[in-house]
Design a protein around this nucleic acid. Structure first.
Lengths: 144, 144
DNA sequence: CCTGTTGCAACCTTCGCTGTTACGACTGCG
DNA sequence: CGCAGTCGTAACAGCGAAGGTTGCAACAGG
């Protein structure tokens, strides 16, 4: 599986903004978040842009610009973030249509589709159980 | 998420071999399976080679060579197949170490690790509930 | 010895993600 | 009004995973 770090980075960014705001700041810049995540500001802006389209964060332009949460950390779940940054399904079908003249080739796609749907439903349920508030709490609970 | 079709193709191959054997044949060739899956025989041999290392299938060489199941379809679960063909974890951490001087950068990885472990455990549990016997039954149940 | 098939290496292509540079758009401040 | 700081976004290179393809040695039965 092409291990994807998008969900991790997005959660990192949200937790960072949330903590920063609790420390009394209005907005966080992509530069600050990128430094914390050890990556490029454009990567952060791209990810946060997807989160903004999903209504999780807001951005301000001009002088004193930056990013702020559109919702409380406790009301944002990992499922919200997952759906905002991960486009496709977890498992894919064949890249080319299997032989429809073969019994297995004909029936395999509907069969797997049904199975995968059930699994993805469970995955979404698990992701929905974790809020960004939970994430930030775990982050701050890390032993020194 | 880079949607991966390896699990789908592996399940296809196993179901094909299982059905073929129930029709009285000894072994199935990668050529036959590749035709059904509409792909290249080498791709099938690579995948079946991983399943063989996991003890799910056996191969015979020489004239009349081919592949056969090492276990009953009913005793092979999608989890067995998943573990045989999918190497890495579902979600990845940052590609570079986050800023350890930052509270979030320091605590984010253990936090996400713990969350991801729980989710993967649930995923494995779901995959373990489906046997290849179930898959073949669903395949044959596809409406004409 | 001949034939059919696996085992496996080597290489190319495609694709998605990350990283980087560049630059226009926007907005508050002096 | 112009400057400065930041977002928004396009463009491109690099990388790694996966699939597709070719080629050939190894094997085993007739």
């Amino acid at each position: 599986m092409s291990a994807n770090s998008r969900l991790t980075i997005a959660a990192h960014a949200l937790a960072w903004i949330g903590l920063y705001q609790r420390q009394g700041h209005e907005v966080a810049t992509s530069e600050q978040i990128a430094t914390s995540a050890n990556t490029n500001p454009v990567v952060i802006r791209r990810l946060l842009g997807e989160l903004r389209r999903a209504g999780l964060v807001e951005s301000r332009r001009g002088v004193g610009a930056g990013w702020s949460l559109a919702r409380e950390l406790g009301s944002i779940t990992l499922l919200d973030v997952y759906e905002a940054v991960e486009p496709g399904p977890l498992f894919a079908m064949h890249r080319t249509t299997p032989d429809q003249g073969c019994v297995v080739g004909y029936g395999i796609q509907p069969a797997m589709q049904g199975i995968y749907e059930g699994i993805e439903k469970t995955l979404r349920h698990e992701l929905a159980r974790v809020t960004l508030e939970n994430v930030l709490r775990d982050v701050l609970a890390a032993p020194r």
